[in-house]
C-alpha cells in the first residue's frame, strides 16, 4: 500500500478498484483532462444465493452511460476476452415503469417468483397489468442511462468465465494497466432529437398496444376480482366477516356507508336537546369564548416574542 496520502487504493473492502481511462474530449477543462472513473468489482455474493451467482460479477459505481454492449466489450476486449451473457443494472434513466403491488405479493416475488401466484399464468398486481412487449407503450428513448454511482451484475456464460474475468480485473488493477472506457453511443443532441421523434409514435403502434393492454387488463381484472372476493371473506379484528355484494366497486360502497352513518349521527345530534337550553350551558359557552380569546391573545403574544427573537427589535426601516 502506498503510504502517500490520498493516493488511489487498489482494493476497498472485498472490491477491486479498477480505474477506467475516460475518452479525451475537446472542451474539457485542464484540471479534469486525466480524470479517471473508478469501478468497484467483486464476485457476486448476494444474501439469498441463486444458481447464477457463481457466474456473475458485481460492479459498483458504473458509469452513467453503461449498457450491456459496452460492459460486454469491456470484458471481451480489455479484460481477458471473456464472454458475457447479460448485464443487469439496478437503475435506469428514465426509470422503468413499475406497478403497484400488494404486500404479500411482493414477498413472494423476492424469492425467484415461486409460490401460489406462479400457478396462474401471470403475476397479479394491484392495478393494471404487468406489461409485456405487446402491451407496453412504444419506447420514447433511444437508450437507457444509469443514475450516478449505481450498480450492475455482469452474468458470464459460465462459472469459469466469471472467475477468469475476476482474475483479469485483479491483474489489471495490480499492474495499473490502462483500461479504456468506451462510453455510450448516440448521446448529445442526437439523443434528444431521436427522443423527440419517438415521443410521437404512429397511431397504429399506439392503437395496437392499447388493444393488447386492454385485453390483458380484462384478464388481470378477473384474477384480481377473485382475489378481492377472497379478501372480503377474511374476518376482521372482531371476527366479523363483512358481507358484500360482488362487483368492482366493493370497497367504495363501504366508504359510502360510513359517510352516511356519520351524516345520520350528525343529524340526530342536531335534532336532540339544544345546547343553549340550560343556564349552565350558556354560562359554559361564555366561559369558553372568553378562554378562547385569552388563548388567542397568548398565542399572539408568543408570536410577537418569536418575531422579536428572530428579527430583533421592531424599528421603522431607515
Amino acid at each position: 500500500m502506498a503510504p502517500k496520502k490520498s493516493s488511489i487504493p487498489k482494493t476497498v473492502a472485498d472490491f477491486i478498484v479498477l480505474p477506467l481511462t475516460l475518452p479525451a474530449l475537446p472542451g474539457l477543462p485542464e484540471s479534469c483532462a486525466d480524470a479517471k472513473h473508478y469501478l468497484y468489482i467483486k464476485p457476486h455474493e448476494p444474501s439469498h444465493a441463486t444458481a447464477r451467482d457463481e457466474q456473475s460479477l458485481f460492479i459498483s459505481n458504473v458509469p452513467f452511460d453503461a449498457n450491456e454492449d459496452n460492459i460486454r466489450a469491456l470484458f471481451t476486449e480489455q479484460l481477458g476476452g471473456l464472454r458475457v451473457a447479460n448485464v443487469e443494472f439496478d437503475s435506469s434513466v428514465p426509470a422503468q415503469a413499475s406497478s403497484k403491488r400488494w404486500k404479500d405479493v411482493k414477498n413472494n416475488e423476492d424469492g425467484d417468483k415461486r409460490g401460489k401466484k406462479r400457478k396462474r399464468d401471470e403475476e397479479v398486481v394491484a392495478e393494471g397489468v404487468v406489461e409485456d412487449d405487446e402491451s407496453r407503450l412504444p419506447n420514447t428513448w433511444p437508450s437507457e442511462l444509469r443514475r450516478g454511482g449505481s450498480c450492475a451484475i455482469v452474468v458470464f456464460v459460465d462459472k469459469s468465465s466469471a472467475h477468469g474475468a475476476m482474475k483479469a480485473v485483479k491483474k489489471a488493477a495490480k499492474e495499473s494497466k490502462e483500461v479504456r472506457w468506451k462510453g455510450g453511443d448516440g448521446l448529445g443532441g442526437e439523443r434528444y432529437k431521436k427522443h423527440h421523434a419517438l415521443r410521437y409514435p404512429s397511431k397504429e403502434a399506439l392503437q395496437s398496444s392499447i388493444n393488447a393492454y386492454l385485453t390483458q387488463f380484462n384478464r388481470a381484472e378477473t384474477a384480481r376480482n377473485r382475489l378481492r372476493k377472497k379478501q372480503r371473506s377474511v374476518p376482521d379484528a372482531e371476527g366479523f366477516v363483512t358481507v358484500t355484494r360482488g362487483g368492482r366497486a366493493g370497497p367504495a360502497r363501504i366508504e359510502d356507508a360510513e359517510r352516511k352513518k356519520t351524516e345520520l349521527e350528525e343529524r340526530r345530534k342536531k335534532n336532540g336537546a339544544k345546547d343553549d337550553f340550560y343556564r349552565f350551558q350558556t354560562r359554559e359557552k361564555r366561559k369558553d369564548a372568553e378562554n378562547e380569546l385569552r388563548r388567542a391573545f397568548e398565542k399572539d403574544r408568543r408570536r410577537v416574542l418569536d418575531l422579536r427573537a428572530r428579527r430583533g427589535r421592531l424599528r421603522p426601516e431607515v
Binding site: A2, S6, P9, V17, N61, F64, G148, G149, S150
Partner: peptide
C-alpha cells in the same frame, strides 16, 4: 449514489 473516487 454518486460517482466516487477512492482515497487512502
Amino acid at each position: 449514489g454518486w460517482s466516487s473516487v477512492p482515497l487512502s
